[in-house]
Simulated scan of single mutants.
Amino acid sequence: MNYTILLFNIVNEMELIMLNNEEKQEIHSNAFTIIENANKLHVINKNRRISEKTRLSYNRIAERLLLINKIMPINAASSKSSYYVYKAAVNSYLLDKISATILLMNKLRAFEAEWLKEVSNLKLYIEFINAVGIDQGKVNLLAYKTVSFNSEWSIKTKEFKPKAISSKSKRLKSLPKNWTEKIFLTALESKSKHILPIATLAITGCRPQELEYGVELKLNDDRSISAKIFGAKTHDGKYGQAFRMFTSKSDSIEFLYLIDQLEQNSGILTVKANAGALCDKVPYLSKKTMPRLKEPVSAYCYRHRFSGDLHKVGLDSEAIAKALGHSNDQSQQKYSKSHRSGATGFSISNIVAATPVNLKNQAKLRNSIHDLAQP
């Protein structure tokens, strides 16, 4: 089969050409086999352990390859590792399409033409996913270790070169002291729909994904704000915190804005945002606000700044882990300990988390001290 033609059929807004009677009969006769194969892939998709952030990232890559550049992963990659990223992205995208179609099938059974069209969609998705190659168990990856692909990969444009990953904790040190205030004022001036989420990032240090779940804010009598955050990165409770709560106070412009919004809403707010849109908006606002920055501010920079706040007020490692939503005190080692905020008077109290913190660093320290004390 010519998979380039197949690719263009799928890419064209996922719309199929009108089927003639012969094609309809062929699809109808093979429909149950197609649906059976699609159900197997649907099960694989349901059992995938993939975060929403990764899924969104994969969707962007797949749409860029399939919808914009109309190119196969093997032709887009510049190395073996990038090939597997692109292949995984396209497979993820197609598996989601298959799952969405399977869920629609029962509703469409009463309308044969539409039902046949969806079966035809499934047929194309399956053929294309077979062409890309789904590699459960990384069997093919192991086989490819001794193979050179240089002859198969064409010269690539800069668009497909992976971006260098920078340390956000180090990045924080290069930002101006009042960077959060500057970005927030730009968001206010542009009347962005992300004003509330950005303010919430600033005072809670929550992850962007946690704003999709909704961060609950409550105004207290002493004009402090209590926050309840439902944790991301918990992997079905295996680690991380399912939720965390704390009360904080600050004189930052974001904090004062949230107090004003809470007063207008009977003292209670649930702040929500699309994680992908928020992660795109923060760098955009930072470029608009500080065009001379070498690298834009990311949504995660707020979390690292919040970690710096926690260290500044002298919290122990257990309290910091709880406030950041960690299940152990080792994860915080990746976060900033420096304070880069123009706000003063920050305080935090009443820190509660879903589960006790595993104090691995403290245990290591105790063991080291014990070993050093031995004669």
Score class of each variant (00 low, 15 high):
Met290Trp: 13
Ser307His: 09
Gln261Phe: 00
Asn69Thr: 05
Leu94Gly: 10
Glu63Tyr: 12
Asp329Trp: 06
Glu181Cys: 07
Asn21Glu: 15
Ile203Glu: 00
Lys156Val: 14
Ala76Gln: 11
Phe306Ala: 01
Lys168Cys: 05
Val215Trp: 01
Lys170Leu: 15
Ser224Arg: 03
Gly133Ala: 07
Glu318Leu: 07
Lys24Phe: 02
Met72Asp: 03
Ser51Leu: 02
Arg109Val: 15
Pro162Met: 05
Val119Ala: 12
Ile268Val: 09
Asn140Gln: 14
Leu7Asp: 02
His339Asp: 08
Asn130Asp: 15
Ile129His: 09
Ala100Glu: 11
Thr186His: 07
Leu293Cys: 03
His311Lys: 07
Thr180Ser: 13
Gln264Ile: 07
Ala31Asn: 07
Lys233Cys: 03
Pro283Gly: 02
Ile126Val: 15
Val139Gly: 01
Gly231Trp: 06
Thr146Gly: 00
Leu142Thr: 03
Ile320Asp: 08
Leu141Arg: 12
Thr289Leu: 13
Gln241Val: 02
Pro296Cys: 05
Lys170Tyr: 10
Glu26Phe: 06
Ser151Gln: 15
Ser99Ile: 00
His28Gly: 06
Ala273Cys: 02
Thr54Ile: 06
Glu63Trp: 13
Ala199Glu: 03
Asn12His: 08
Leu293Ser: 10
Ser51Met: 05
Lys70Asn: 09
Phe346Ile: 04
Leu103Lys: 12
Ile203Leu: 05
Glu15Pro: 00
Phe8Met: 11
Ala373Leu: 09
Ala275Arg: 02
Glu181Val: 05
Ile102Ser: 03
Phe128Asn: 00
Ser81Gln: 15
Ile183Arg: 08
Arg292Phe: 14
Tyr213Cys: 00
Glu23Gln: 15
Thr355Ile: 14
Leu172Trp: 00
Val90Thr: 11
Ala299Gly: 05
Ala275Trp: 01
Lys87Val: 05
Ser190Arg: 13
Ser336Met: 04
Leu175Pro: 04
Leu175Tyr: 09
Ile165Glu: 15
Ala38Gln: 09
Leu258Pro: 03
Met72Phe: 14
Val132Thr: 08
Ala232Asn: 13
Lys337Val: 09
Ala89Phe: 06
Asp96Ile: 12
Glu114Met: 10
Gln330Met: 11
Ala373Val: 00
Gly231Gln: 06
Glu254Leu: 02
Thr270Ser: 01
Asn220Met: 13
Pro296Leu: 01
Phe184Met: 10
Tyr86Ala: 01
Lys191Gly: 09
Ala242Val: 04
His28Thr: 14
Val119Trp: 05
Leu185Pro: 02
Ala62Lys: 14
Gln333Pro: 04
Ser82Gln: 13
Asn75Cys: 09
Lys294Met: 11
His235Pro: 01
Glu26Arg: 12
Ser169Glu: 08
Glu26Cys: 07
Phe8Glu: 15
Ile129Phe: 03
